[in-house]
Amino acid sequence: MLEVIDLWVDVNGTQVLKGVDLNIPSGETHILFGKNGSGKSTLLMTIMGFRRYKVQQGRILFNGRDITEMPVNERAQMGIGLAFQRPPAIRGVKTRDIFNICNSDGVSCEMLAEKFDFSSLLERDLNVGFSGGEMKKSELLQLLLQEPALILLDEPESGVDLENLETLGKAINRLLQKHLWRTRAKSGLVISHVGFILNYIEADAGYVLMDGRIHCQGNPRELFKGIQRHGYRECIQCQR
């Protein structure tokens, strides 16, 4: 579904990605590990198409189509959805309005909000005064309404207390159609810094991103164990 080929990206004059290659087939969820500042978010932001992230070389293909130069909204309409790590607060714009913007199928925002204990936040200005967990929940509910085919999650567990992690895990599994087997069509690329998310979602492959390149690929749980035991730098040495 997603194919990234030899991607080089510059952010404000700094070379952040230096030849990233990856391939996520339909129905699979991949996890990207890496230290702070390794370029994980840059990769997601570039796949989504934000202007600050300048592609200097390489291509991004989505369902076989080259989207490297495509505007953000067209990528969204084609089926790419991103849950932000730190979404902006937008004063005066009600969370409900954003939910309605995302809602493609006329799903009831009220019912969804109630199910995820989010009803009281619908009338609030988007992300104004939200806790970390509330922001994350809002992001995931927006994606549930948007129903993208490729789901990009930027550190979905950061800033969320343990109690809420399980609810978020449920939302993520639903997004990724983890209840389906043969007919599962949704793919995911999840960034994790601390790896907690592995306890809540089943991932098919994991990578380590370091110094702007992907260094190894493997079973995500084993990979994460290695990272925990040896640290990132040593981990990529041994896997290599």
Binding site: F50, P71, V72, A76, I90, G92, K94, D97, I101, Q142
Partner: peptide
């Protein structure tokens, strides 16, 4: 710009995103 692009990531065009933000403002 991050507010505009945030709304574009939800499927709005740049003009629609701008007007949503101004209306909210």
């Amino acid at each position: 710009e991050e507010e505009i692009e945030y709304l574009m990531a939800r499927g709005l065009t740049e003009e629609e995103a701008t007007s949503t933000i101004v209306r909210g403002f």
